[in-house]
Design a protein around this nucleic acid. Structure first.
Lengths: 127, 127
DNA sequence: TAGCCTAAACTAATAAGTTAGTTATAAAGC
DNA sequence: GCTTTATAACTAACTTATTAGTTTAGGCTA
């Protein structure tokens, strides 16, 4: 079963599941549609379809179904990267930097993050 | 005119335009559908619709129309960032790093890129 | 147990995306 | 001038996304 890429709305629901972990339709609905912008049954339909597609997993606890994301933020990032930048992280990061809305402090933070990840990776490769 | 986000196929076409700069339907078609996977008229229809949406610009040179992207890779990156990670570059980069398919060399390269961007930004902020 | 509540399953309707064929028109060559 | 060719404009069919209503059934309460 090839897991298709989520649509925009599906992504909204996945984001809620990333935050909540395992959740009922009700939980997702309440988090997503605070002011009744969307119906309970809409969320329900989405979760059912997404379960068919393999984007979420479904587990029955008593009579109610609990849903969990089977599509990670990492996957979303990777898919986007391949789709738009043919998999080149450099190009993506350059584009982000060009967008100009990251502060110098954030950049410093990023530099540190990446440096740490690199060192960790080097160590792993040595062993 | 609110410029909507491009769909998947529209993105394929934008990518070609990013590469070619200004191009005719024919050029886009040849680049995109090397083995006749899609019809000339399909590309044509897409470009027409995308022009209506403001995703590309249209310029007549004689009888033929030349198209140019009006939606940059930067915009695509920024939109994605907001959609999936609520605009947090940190989260995105962390996700990328977690994906494990970047080599230590690439990471080093990234670190350098970001460092340079940061210094440039600092200098600009000083002045 | 009869009625109520909740949640799942089913159904449906509209909108948007995707693909490509047909028609019309202008230019280019013979 | 007529035929071919290339391109734009129009049209159409089919698919997928999005939204939500209706029906059904399990469990709870009085």
């Amino acid at each position: 079963m090839a897991q298709p890429a989520p649509s925009d709305r599906e992504l909204d629901i996945l984001k809620v599941l990333w935050k909540l972990g395992e959740a009922r339709v009700r939980d997702v609905h309440e988090t997503l549609c605070q002011r009744g912008q969307c119906a309970f049954t809409t969320v329900q339909t989405f979760l059912r379809i997404m379960a068919e597609k393999g984007l979420v997993s479904q587990r029955a606890k008593g009579r109610t179904l609990y849903y969990k994301a089977r599509y990670s933020p990492q996957r979303a990032a990777a898919r986007f990267l391949h789709k738009v930048f043919d998999g080149s992280v450099d190009q993506l990061v350059l584009s982000m930097l060009a967008a100009e809305d990251t502060s110098a402090d954030e950049l410093k933070q990023l530099e540190k993050l990446i440096g740490e990840a690199r060192k960790k990776k080097l160590k792993r490769e040595e062993s």
